[in-house]
Each structure stands twice: as structure tokens, then as C-alpha cells.
């Protein structure tokens, strides 16, 4: 009798533990492409381009963003559509959302830009991403340091490759 009671207890505990440690499943998504216009005139020095998005639109229908359990950025590629625009000295890429703190995701060094490499060097620490992506909406912020004035608008693109996992 006692044995049977203990067995039941053990199974119940096991179920609870397994439920709690539910395995995260990866989500296959396309590379997210964002585009924004930094409205000119843009003067020499630090300028900003921002774009708001909702990560939910990138997720498959059956996955809600609240279920995201692990998030990493695999890569971010920045692009400038106006070829005549002055090449910035540097880029810093940040993410923000209404109910979390803005965080640096990475940056591009002047040396990389000189070699036409607009791949963002990503931050090691990315634990903050889950919270940001679970928020109502997300804002990608790109700060770039222009070498000289540019009196037109500047179209900035970002291609973000996410590594997402969710819990059912």
C-alpha cells in the first residue's frame, strides 16, 4: 500500500519535473529583412535610423512569441542602398521594446567597413533578447557615424538571422 503510494508520488513528481524542463524546440524562420529611411539632411557625425517590427510576423502561425524560450542572433548584415552616400565610420546596432531596456546587439568597426564588410560583430551576451522579443513590439536602432554631410535621405537595410527556440 505504502509502496504504491510512493510510486504514485514519484511518478507525479517526475511528470512535474519533465513538464517544467520541457525541451525547447527550434523554429525555422527566414532571414528577417528590415528597411528604414533615415530622413535627410544627415550631417557629419552620429545619426540614427530606427525601424519598428513585431517578431510575431516572422514566427510560424502555431508559435506565439510568449513561447520563445531561447533567442540568439546568428548574424546581422547592414546595407546602405544609396551608393553615393558617404560611408559611415561605424555602425552600432541596438534593440529596444516598450517594456524592456535598450541593449547593444553589436557593432561594425571602421576596419570592416573599409573592407566593404557590413557584417555586425555580435555581442556575446544575448540573454536579454527573449524579453525584448516577447514584448508588444520591437525597435531596431542603427546608430551610424557619417564622415561627411549627406543632404538626401538614406535607406538603411538590416538582414537579421535569428536562432529561435520555443517551448510548447
Amino acid at each position: 500500500m505504502i509502496n504504491s503510494f510512493l510510486k504514485t508520488q514519484f511518478i507525479a513528481l517526475l511528470v512535474i519535473v519533465l513538464w517544467g524542463c520541457g525541451k525547447s524546440e527550434p523554429i525555422q524562420t527566414d532571414v528577417q529583412k528590415l528597411e528604414t529611411i533615415a530622413v535627410g539632411p544627415l550631417f557629419e557625425g552620429v545619426n540614427t535610423a530606427t525601424v519598428e517590427f513585431d517578431i510575431q510576423k516572422l514566427l510560424p502561425g502555431e508559435v506565439k512569441k510568449d513561447q520563445l524560450s531561447e533567442v540568439r542572433i546568428k548574424s546581422i548584415l547592414i546595407g546602405l542602398s544609396n551608393s553615393e552616400a558617404p560611408v559611415p565610420n561605424s555602425f552600432t546596432v541596438l534593440l529596444a521594446s516598450p517594456n524592456t531596456s535598450m541593449k547593444e546587439c553589436g557593432f561594425i568597426k571602421e576596419e570592416s567597413i573599409k573592407m566593404n564588410n557590413y557584417q555586425v560583430s555580435l555581442a556575446e551576451e544575448q540573454d536579454f533578447l527573449v524579453e525584448i522579443l516577447q514584448d508588444n513590439m520591437q525597435t531596431l536602432v542603427i546608430d551610424f557615424d557619417l564622415k561627411e554631410d549627406w543632404f538626401d535621405d538614406l535607406t538603411v537595410t538590416a538582414a537579421i538571422d535569428w536562432e529561435l527556440k520555443f517551448k510548447k
Binding site: 530622413v39 539632411p41 544627415l42 550631417f43 557629419e44 557625425g45
Partner: peptide, 8 residues
């Protein structure tokens, strides 16, 4: 306002 703060 944006225009006023451009040339630091």
C-alpha cells in the same frame, strides 16, 4: 529641431 542639432 532635428536640423538644429546637426553640426556639433
Amino acid at each position: 529641431d532635428e536640423e538644429d542639432y546637426s553640426i556639433y
